[in-house]
Nucleic acid binder design. Sequence first.
DNA 1: CATGAATGAGCCTTCATTCAT
DNA 2: GATGAATGAAGGCTCATTCAT
Lengths: 217, 217, 217, 217
Amino acid sequence: MDLIPTMPDHSLEKPAHCRRKEARPTEIIAAALHLFDEKGYAATRLDDVALRAGVSKGTIYLYFDSKEALFNAVVREGLVAALSGWEVRLANDAGNSSNLLGELVLDFSRMFGSDQAGAVLKLALSEAGNFPDIAHTYHDCVIEPGIDLLRRVVMRGMARREFRSVNPEIAAHIILAPLLMRVIWEHSFICGGSDVPTERYLAEYLDLVLEGLQSAG
Amino acid sequence: MDLIPTMPDHSLEKPAHCRRKEARPTEIIAAALHLFDEKGYAATRLDDVALRAGVSKGTIYLYFDSKEALFNAVVREGLVAALSGWEVRLANDAGNSSNLLGELVLDFSRMFGSDQAGAVLKLALSEAGNFPDIAHTYHDCVIEPGIDLLRRVVMRGMARREFRSVNPEIAAHIILAPLLMRVIWEHSFICGGSDVPTERYLAEYLDLVLEGLQSAG
Amino acid sequence: MDLIPTMPDHSLEKPAHCRRKEARPTEIIAAALHLFDEKGYAATRLDDVALRAGVSKGTIYLYFDSKEALFNAVVREGLVAALSGWEVRLANDAGNSSNLLGELVLDFSRMFGSDQAGAVLKLALSEAGNFPDIAHTYHDCVIEPGIDLLRRVVMRGMARREFRSVNPEIAAHIILAPLLMRVIWEHSFICGGSDVPTERYLAEYLDLVLEGLQSAG
Amino acid sequence: MDLIPTMPDHSLEKPAHCRRKEARPTEIIAAALHLFDEKGYAATRLDDVALRAGVSKGTIYLYFDSKEALFNAVVREGLVAALSGWEVRLANDAGNSSNLLGELVLDFSRMFGSDQAGAVLKLALSEAGNFPDIAHTYHDCVIEPGIDLLRRVVMRGMARREFRSVNPEIAAHIILAPLLMRVIWEHSFICGGSDVPTERYLAEYLDLVLEGLQSAG
DNA sequence: CATGAATGAGCCTTCATTCAT
DNA sequence: GATGAATGAAGGCTCATTCAT
């Protein structure tokens, strides 16, 4: 499966000519993301994507080879957005591990709080059956790095005797879960959901996790 | 949306007549569940459901009014399976709250370990966009009771000074998340996934959560 | 096309045994007639015919080879009913031709006033496209004899100088038309229709026709 | 029931672009009319309509929401065609009523002689059971105005002592019947039918009717 | 580049017909 | 004979994809 959409490289064109034209693919992707997230891949009609993007249906095919290619582009865009969020200063940060974990969680919250990354997370999970390649790519490029980051923070904390001894791999999964779940939640039970504001949720969550990790001493 | 499929009540028919007949709806539901879980609602063809159930396409319509009705039946079946799992002895159990929480988690694991309940959980989340009624029903009948159970255990622990003071509502969500996430995981990244066996995962998870809840004293 | 339904000859069975059984074909035909008339051939489901006849769907096939065969039987039954109505004493009646025409019209009205013959008339016209054989048979067995009868009365009247000189063939058609039309009317615009009672309609009709035929002298 | 098909208004589009495009709906309606007339609504396949119209099946759905909507459009078209035929100069015509009636009949004959109006008349009667709304609309918009016109001519004749005293309402029905019947005839017993040419039929018919209406003096 | 009319493969659904009981 | 569960061919409808303008 080709994750890179058929998209002409406009990088050498004069920049101030027609901003709309260059934004087209992005606008289409944004429209598609919204609808894929809302209705799922299969139930989303290209007509609706075109309508929402303000272009004709045929135009979509100028930039993407097929509906599946569009889906790939959507996910890839969200992938990039997500990846950029995982950039942490893990190494050069000299603070204590609890703070480091706290910042990681905030980063995460900011990243998946955007429609972009959040919707793609849900998409990757929902459509995993029909697009195993995407599921794998997403897992390898987003989930695994995130887990890895958490694992390293946990190991750092253990090494510095700030955290008690746990299985870092599993702990990372468990720590990540409530964050992912919260994202899925908001994209599935749109109306209603829990009325707990994100800040409180994160605070309480961090409190619980850190307490659980805290070294006995 | 009607969650009860149009399904004749066979309970009064002659029992030794044709054993297959009474099992048909169940077989169809099982086949449908498998495919819905694997490919999603829209991408599942009724032909394939029929093939897998070992019946003709028309037969499906003897028991279900439409593809959507079949989907409803599938979810409802999983709902029942899930609900039966939440039966806990919360009240008459005199043990300490940590043990109680541990048992709850085991119950949960058993329940959603079955394909039935697990697949339906993933379905409810994946197809929430297209079937808001189902999403709501699932939330109200499965998720919310589960959260409530956890909340009550947390409050019990706090009342008995076994747990420190936390927000029970949020804590319940956070405690539930890794369990749900694990289920989703297994239904999305089928091959691969984490190679951590469920028992170890649960043990580590319980350890972390209980440590996090532990009263300081 | 076979106008004779596959129907076992019960004429030699003991008569007082099980009246229902022998009446089955007739009951099925009656139910079919009602539904064919109401909804047309294609829109009538055999399930509904069975339901209305109080038998199972399979039973229909004990008496009729196919839906088309049932339709044929229905029409043929109505044909017989209609034909029996055309039995007139044309020859031995010595009265004047106006009276003779009046009696013919009354006969006609009685015949097509029954649901049986009336419905079949409408059926034959409506479904002529799909069942040309039936249309022809109906035309040859019912319409043509009726026209012929009228023609002979008109010719008799002309021969006896009771009627003025007209084209008997055409006159017969024109005289028949309002009678047929009235029947069609009642089977098409069921509710509403004209509120003129049949008696008045016939009287006025006869008055107009006879006046039109009246010899000038 | 909505008699107006979902049909984009092309009146403002560039005219010299693609002559075919604007004719499409009309061509589809014509093809549908032919087949509906020939085989009835239910027995007509949209594939066949498409084939006859020289378009693909999907194209039909560009202009009509459903088979039923297409049927509505067909009837409505025929309705318009029929209504335009009932335009008579009743008021300003100073001639005698017999002539007026004669002209009305010619108008009628011209109108329903076209496939359009004639086929729709038969359709309205045949499919009245399945489309009561259409039957009513047709009755109210075509039949009733026609009857009304005839009634007014009859009353005019009576007022001017050209016609004898009859019930105008009933007379109108009776006068209309042979005309309608002739139309139905031609659409039902396509091959064969009576071999009397329309002109002779009309002449004989008028002769009979006028004679019947003639004032005794 | 952009459009949107046209296409046709594919799927849900219906229903006449069969057949084991 | 009678039943009604099961069948599967057929048709209405959708929508991703193409292409002439």
